[in-house]
């Protein structure tokens, strides 16, 4: 009897000890799905700097552009349904036009890509430079800017504190507070958009006198991307999930990416 009790005691202790630290490991590759990744930002007034075409890699490997780049894509860009611009591979997954082209506001650009028989398509409109009609500081916390809107565009505004040299900044907004909802925009109507909060460090009069605001216009497809763009972040702590899927505008099977037109205003000092 004592022996039986001894064995029961040992069994209980063993199970108890094994249960103290609960840990099972999931191999991330077991859920890997390869997707094609296509990105291009068409900025009004600037030279077209190419379309990046790569593929996703499993989480278990170190990201290496040589493993991710796709070199055998064929494709072209069509401007306003008329002009065709063939794309040629350069390096690191980037495909460029054979001759430099300048992106123009008001134009519509379509992207046609084919990789191993799989076809991908996207279209975008390049907005006109937004004009800030009025801007003012609210308290010392953030800025509001008034813009005359167009229904095919969405807008965001950002604060900047210029530095001593051109195109340098002492401080700048890290993101937009909001992007206007395309469903609420009517062409010709004014919209008021706010910046993200100015950090405490930049709220003294020294900085507030220097602070300027700039408006950005995007093709309205940018709105959905903006709403969901943080979904694809890495997990940074144990009890947080990284999110869900981001909303993209490239059409095709197993593809993610964004092909979007944008423009920006000049800097305006608030009233």
């Amino acid at each position: 009897m004592n022996k039986i009790l001894y064995y029961i005691f040992i069994l209980i202790c063993t199970v108890f000890a094994s249960g103290c630290q609960q840990d099972e490991i999931l191999e991330p590759d077991s859920v890997f799905t390869e997707k094609t990744v296509i990105f291009a930002n068409l900025k009004d007034g600037l030279l077209f700097d190419g379309v990046t075409i790569t593929k996703t890699l499993p989480l278990s490997v170190n990201y290496d552009i040589k493993k991710a780049e796709i070199t055998n894509a064929a494709g072209y860009i069509k401007v306003n349904g008329l002009q065709l611009i063939p794309l040629a591979y350069t390096k690191d997954g980037v495909y460029k036009s054979l001759h430099p082209i300048t992106i123009k506001s008001g134009n519509t650009y379509e992207l046609f890509i084919e990789i191993d028989g799989k076809k991908f398509y996207a279209t975008t409109y390049v907005p006109y430079k937004p004009v800030i009609e009025e801007a003012h500081l609210v308290g010392d916390q953030y800025l509001n800017a008034k813009i005359k809107a167009k229904s095919e565009e969405v807008y965001g505004v950002a604060w900047y504190i210029p530095g001593a040299t051109i195109n340098s900044y002492l401080g700048m907004a890290q993101d937009f507070q909001e992007i206007t909802d395309p469903k609420t925009i009517v062409t010709g109507e004014e919209v008021v958009i706010r910046t993200i909060d100015i950090p405490l460090a930049y709220r003294s009069s020294t900085y507030s006198n220097l602070t300027v605001v700039k408006a950005y216009a995007f093709d309205k497809q940018y709105y959905d991307y903006f709403k969901s763009k943080s979904n694809n972040q890495q997990i940074t702590n144990s009890y947080t999930q990284g999110g869900g899927q981001t909303i993209w505008n490239i059409m095709g099977t197993d593809v993610i990416g964004l092909f979007i037109g944008s423009s920006e205003s000049s800097s305006v000092k608030p009233n």
């Binding site: 859920v31 799905t33 990046t52 996703t56 890699l57 763009k229 979904n231 997990i235 999110g243």
Partner: peptide
């Protein structure tokens, strides 16, 4: 919700810096 792959992209918007991002289910 789990990530199913990784990619590098220049986020479009303010401060576009090329970063590794996860593609989620």
């Amino acid at each position: 919700t789990l990530p199913i792959g990784q990619y590098r992209a220049d986020p479009i918007g303010l401060n576009p810096q090329s970063t590794i991002q996860y593609d989620y289910m």
